[in-house]
Simulated scan of single mutants.
Amino acid sequence: MLSNLEKMKKFGFSIQTVLFLAFFLNTTLTAETLSKNIITVETDMHTSLITSISADKNSKYFLTSSYDKTLRLWDTKDGRLLKVFRVPPPEDTKLYKTKISPDGNHIAALTSEGVYIFDSDNGEIIKRIDLSVGYRIENYYYWFDIYYSEDSQNLAIYSLYDQTTKVYSAKNYEFIKKFNGKLFFSPSGDILNFDGRKVIIYDSHLRVKRKIKFPSYPDHVSFSKDGNMIAFGYSSALNEKTHYIKIEIYSTELKKVGTISDKVNQELLHKLFWSSDGKTIYAVYGIVTFKNYSFNKILKIDTSNKKIISTININNFGEVTDLVYLKDNKFAAVTNIPSILIFDKDKTILLKLNQRN
């Protein structure tokens, strides 16, 4: 009589198939077994909406986050994917925002489970910071903001829920201090704390230097690269009849030196960037939806004449979900396709990354 093995071979089963079936039929399909044997296929591009992008101080790297629960570190020069970071369980964890520290050493990821800190070199999780007690962040990724100080020494986490900012040391990510309102870090080391219309200026050691009253609470604040000038950005409310964005330029002594405004069609100001040489301010604005932003235009402002030079229309790039300034008047943007673009001030595309590359 033929053995079972010989019978299977007689009917055309290869020895590899026989061995596979023997293994499969004698293996209990537990969750643990599946997790050990399922192969993860890695692609070079995100497989879902890219939610944010950031860059280090020297624009050597840029970092992206996505609803596919990965963070990806890229080489700015040639667009090479350098490393993939994964958010740990549970499975329904959502990844909203990410920031790379200016020195490029650490990565902070805002998720529905808190803020995870990664070592950008070895990919290990250094710390998990809880943001709340008794609830998870769901959908409203704009309720929180995360950002590093210019010297990479501190991480700030701003909460719109209670309008406070918590500062953590980037050495060990231990909590340092809680502030009312939002903080803005200067390249010179000073810190602006807006608490309503009251401005408190701290030094790099969080000691109060002075307190002043300010005309109004800005939507956005951006320091020039040398720290000598500050741009404050404002948007009209969506329910106002006339819509505008306004940029006010101040010295570091908070003396106004110029105002620029422009009418818009219900768009809101999202971001402000100073050029590397301080001659230009880029004001990014676009449409706000219930769950997301969509950037469509960039105002180019001459800081000497306090005038709008031109408007860069980026509508034809697709739905731009986030954008960051790179050195030498370049930008890196992410779209909902998903794709990544690097383009210059003349809207010339220098690099494009997507699934088809």
Rank of each mutant, 00 (worst) to 15 (best):
Y67N: 05
D277G: 12
V84Y: 08
N357P: 00
K127Y: 00
L326T: 11
K306A: 13
T259H: 10
K241L: 09
S222K: 07
E150D: 11
N239K: 13
P88V: 09
K352N: 11
T64P: 03
K7L: 09
K60I: 10
Y168N: 01
K99V: 00
Y282H: 09
T47G: 12
E150V: 01
Y147G: 04
A333H: 12
F20N: 12
G278D: 11
I212T: 08
D92R: 12
L323R: 12
S339W: 00
F290P: 07
P187L: 05
D75C: 08
F295L: 13
K97W: 04
P215L: 01
Q153D: 06
E174R: 09
A55D: 05
Y61T: 01
W74M: 08
I308P: 03
L254M: 13
Y135G: 08
I309P: 04
T51M: 04
T40P: 08
N315F: 06
G114P: 10
H220G: 01
T43F: 14
S235P: 02
F24E: 11
N265S: 15
G79V: 02
T30A: 14
S159M: 09
K213G: 06
F62C: 07
Y116N: 08
I245C: 00
W274A: 07
T335F: 15
I230L: 10
Y141V: 02
N315E: 09
A55H: 02
E240Q: 10
T165Y: 12
S14E: 07
F144M: 08
S132P: 03
D119V: 10
R197C: 05
F175L: 15
I50Y: 05
S261P: 02
S132C: 10
M45C: 04
D203C: 00
H243M: 00
V18R: 11
I309W: 12
L82R: 11
Q266E: 13
F23T: 10
I247N: 05
F175E: 15
S101R: 00
A283H: 15
K127D: 00
T303Q: 14
E124P: 11
A22H: 15
S159Y: 06
I260D: 02
L272T: 15
N172A: 02
N4Y: 14
T40Y: 15
Y202R: 01
S294D: 06
M45A: 04
L299Y: 13
F343L: 02
S251Y: 04
K347A: 04
Q163L: 06
I15V: 14
K256Q: 13
S310V: 01
K330P: 02
L25E: 14
Y116C: 04
T30P: 09
K330L: 03
Q16G: 10
Q163R: 12
I314Y: 03
G196H: 05
V199D: 10
Y141A: 06
R210L: 05
G196P: 01
I349F: 09
V264E: 09
I230F: 06
